[in-house]
Amino acid sequence: MDEAFGVDERTEGDLLHLAVRGELDLATAPMLRERLYGAADRSSGPLIVDLLAVTFIDSTALGVLIGTQERCQERGIDLRLVLEDARILKIFEITGLTELFAISPTVTEAAAR
């Protein structure tokens, strides 16, 4: 059984790290939007969105990530994604979003960008 959707948040210096888990789809996109937009609006430094524990992602969740990127750009902060699962990465590749997002395979690498 896939892990239920959830977001854990922690701050390290000026980095805001959000670890997302579960399936990101039409059902969970509104909750994801609330958490990510909220973080983008109040973060004072780079925003790291860790998708390592995400088991499914569809176009509605990708739309939320694009919206988060736009909010981050408006505020002049970096959005950095962390993902390694080949199945999830494939969705970013076929939609051309690997060109839009800064993607790292680990949180440590994302923090060091």
Partner: peptide, 16 residues
Amino acid sequence: RPDEHGERELSVRILD
């Protein structure tokens, strides 16, 4: 469905 970030186009690309 909200389509402010081109979600419909993303769906079509995924299906393609």
